[in-house]
Amino acid sequence: MSTAATAIAQPTAAPNPTQHPRLRRLSKVAGALYLAIFVIYPLSTLVRSSLVVPGDAAATADNIRAQETLFRWGLAGEATIVLVEVALAGVLYALLRPVSRSVSLAGALARVAEAVVMAAGCLATGVFTMVALGDSGSLAAFDADQRNALALFFQEANEHIVLVWGFFFALSLLLTGWLVHRSGFLPRFTGILLALAGVGYLVQSFGTFLAPDLADTWQLVVLVLAVPGELIFALWLLTRGVDHVNWSAAADRARQSQL
């Protein structure tokens, strides 16, 4: 059997839940959180794209006013993702710390940074849109067309903010992929897939900034590269978890190297 095949096959041995119940719980929580993001994020995006009409401020404003509840659910979905990302950063840090404490910390920080940018960008633009289209009177100096234009401006700004948090997310995935690949307690191929997902997000963010005419291509790249990696990693954590023997060995090595 080749070395690579051995490396993949090794961790597939079913972990013994009685020996490391906390570890097993931790990996299940990580998988569940990852799966939650996998489902909630595209649904939130779908809500936005069903209501926002690129370039047509009046239609966008009419849609958001008419479907305010749906729009608010979209915002709630994004807020949930922000919270889940922060929690996931902590869980993955704890899970991957035995491989490299500094890299695991960097990966977690990148993920938290992504969540912060997402909160500051996506959520803020959503809230500002609601203010622009609301009856609060704070924008009474603007006429209806101007308020509509403002709402569309916030929504179109969000399209670009996605690319900004994409940088941090890409970094987080690349580092997590490296950690998983090196870990020995998770299959190497999931690490490679995660790193590929990171490359996808990086290509999308840089690509759209540098070659906006090819934005459709970049979006396809991220879809093709990111979905398999993130889904498989989430399902592996949820159903198989980590190899407790190798995880303990890695944790011991990490403790010794600290001493």
Partner: peptide, 12 residues
């Protein structure tokens, strides 16, 4: 998982 995949495809 199916909902997630459908949502990703739909979103794209």
């Amino acid at each position: 998982v199916m909902i997630g995949l459908a949502a990703h495809a739909g979103s794209y």
